[in-house]
Nucleic acid binder design. Structure first.
Lengths: 370, 370
DNA sequence: TAGGGTGTTGTGACCGGTCCCATCCGAGAA
DNA sequence: TTCTCGGATGGGACCGGTCACAACACCCTA
């Protein structure tokens, strides 16, 4: 009935497979359970034994097998990031921050795309992305990401990276964000102080409601008692920025534009140029994000820098927290947004700004060298 | 001696764990081995049994547990991508292509960064990235990636994405690349045909030796019998492009520059502008890669488009091949490089190009609408 | 009718960890 | 001295798949 019993190959030194805890145990003269306790930093192991086991682990080059751990129901040790994109700067930088943080604590990082082109497939993709003992970070800046987030069952340890929520609208799941309200307000006030009668806004898509950067813009205009145009629906790309910018370029009253991101700003600048308007002499443009290219735009872009990498790190830190993992990440400051002044902003044309304002702005925005 | 035997909870319908092959087997009235054969598309299963099992799988929503498969020594079902970067366009686009391909065949995709800042850590990072039953794609466009590639033991199924190898220098491991020799040559010839006495080159780093795009440039100049300057060491970023461009801007003989990538081109354009030179009236600039921003540069950038996404897909297809996985990807055409003509190129200044050349170039490069 | 191949199915062991439980031992309290 | 208790350690079962092997048809040939 029973076939020939194969001799297990687990005697140390004579095996091409990587060593297991049983190999370590044998070499250290303890049981495999003790080895397990040592690698999981269980308190009830004597110092002598622990030291001996650790030495053997180092000597044999033992590394715990992730698959076996996951199978046996150990603590989570991998994250899958769900997002609609890897080429947009914010997404890529967030990914980089997450990766770095996971590497520090020995987690694996996976990525799965939820495609904007096929929203109907998203629930299925999300379901496949969820694995037993797995965790998730969902980049929910945009609609596909938010859709994906909704598909994730509550029992899956998940952190969402989201647009900053509006006042009183608490996110339903553990989330991280950068609140750019203050920076958007500051940027708008900066433009108003330079004599621009109003500031137009080319937003990123407002989803599900409005963005904090738009609220900051609104607040600045409201405080200044300045009329406000109703912003368009919004977009993400330079192409959209070009089209929207072309519309604004036809309006001679437009002298200052706050763009929802740097991609839009780049498109808007191109549209202005093609319409024969000079930036910043005729129209001032401010971007959002500070992508690495921004300082080489023509003109170098004044923009609000956002630390997406730090945001990614924060997301993973929160994930460790909520999945009560034994590992932790050193606490870090909340990622900030702040205005970077370059050369795409100038005093309003025609209406000569007062000397104090002009010199003040000069003093306030010493263009940094590249 | 033996404690109380816990009744296994694996009876279908009464269990909060996701169903296992044993649950499926019980529900379908077959053995678990038969279920295993069905999900692995083993030929020796009768059609009747197969249909019954598949129906049960669908009904129970069974999905094979990846960790268990990996542990039991099944075929590979995940790739880890090793690369120095996620924010550079070429890297991010390649990642996107790999992800899409893995998703199609049910593979997982991980990412691990090998940081340029700390080359000494690379061997360690690579070692940790290798898992039993795991596979690797190494993005070895740059030095950290190439370093990482060298650390990978030969027995690990690995595909490298590399700079196209020079003639006769066969890569030692399975590799994919885009051969941009012809496109670089074409771009250079295009500039020469517009009357530029020579074409300068701002290369990406040549590592380990020279790049195919540089060889294409050299070949065009050699064929035209034109003098050639010795190119600089090379860099990746706009910052480097700005610095190198500033040097070229001082030389009045420089009227045409072929840049190793679009980032460099953007920096070079900025440097020319800051030096008071007009692009393309005084200096023509050609880039490489065609990043999404390129068409919105000032002026819109003439560049060589490379299909990194297709390259990523090809890398994964080759990985499936060499790891003799049961899954395959539909064959696709080799990713190409081709010249995209926009507005950063003009006939050489001063030396008036002949009418036929000028009109020819106009006819050849109808600037695409944005 | 016996013998041999082929196709189909089932059983046992195993991958490398983790959990639960049992055992052993020494110290302090009754 | 005996009992209790907690720290240190070990053994067995198990996670959900895969592999190797055995068993049982069934058909074809000799």
């Amino acid at each position: 009935m029973t076939g020939p019993i194969r001799e297990p190959l687990n005697f140390a030194g004579n095996c091409d497979r990587s060593p297991s805890i049983r190999d370590v145990a044998r070499a250290a003269g303890v049981s495999y359970q003790t080895v397990s306790r040592v690698i999981n930093e269980h308190p009830n192991v004597s110092d002598t034994t622990r030291a001996a086991v650790l030495a053997t682990i180092a000597q044999l080059g033992f590394r715990p097998n992730r698959a076996a751990r996951a199978l046996a129901g150990g603590p989570a040790q991998a994250v899958t990031v769900l997002g609609s994109n890897t080429t947009l700067y914010g997404f890529a930088a967030a990914l980089e921050g997450i990766e770095e943080a996971t590497r520090e604590v020995g987690f694996g990082m996976g990525f799965r795309a939820v495609e904007a082109r096929s929203p109907a497939d998203i629930p299925d993709v999300v379901e496949r992305a969820i694995e037993p003992a797995g965790t998730l970070i969902v980049i929910a800046f945009d609609k596909p990401g938010a859709l994906a987030l909704e598909c994730v069952p509550l029992e899956v340890p998940t952190v969402a990276m989201i647009q900053a929520p509006t006042e009183g609208a608490e996110p339903t799941r553990p989330s991280v964000w950068i609140d750019e309200f203050a920076a958007a307000k500051e940027a708008t006030e900066y433009l108003l102080a330079l004599g621009h009668p109003t500031v137009h806004h080319l937003p990123i898509p407002s989803w599900p409601r409005t963005t904090r950067r738009m609220e900051g813009w609104r607040a600045a205009l409201a405080e200044a008692g300045v009329r406000m145009h109703e912003p368009l629906q919004g977009g993400w790309t330079s192409t959209w920025g070009y089209e929207a910018g072309a519309v604004l370029a036809r309006d001679p009253n437009v002298t200052a534009v706050l763009c929802g991101n740097d991609d839009i700003a780049l498109g808007a600048i191109a549209a202005m140029r093609d319409a024969g308007k000079r930036v910043p002499a005729d129209v001032s443009i401010v971007g959002f994000d500070d992508i690495p290219y921004a300082q080489f735009f023509a003109p170098p872009l004044t923009t609000v820098r956002q630390d997406f990498k730090a945001l990614g790190r924060a997301a993973f830190a929160k994930l460790l927290e909520i999945s009560n993992s034994p590992r932790t990440l050193p606490p870090a400051a909340a990622p900030q947004a702040r205005l970077i002044m370059r050369h795409s902003v100038a005093p309003a044309p025609q209406v000569a700004p007062s000397a104090s304002e002009a010199s003040g702005s000069e003093a306030r925005s010493p263009p940094p060298g590249r």
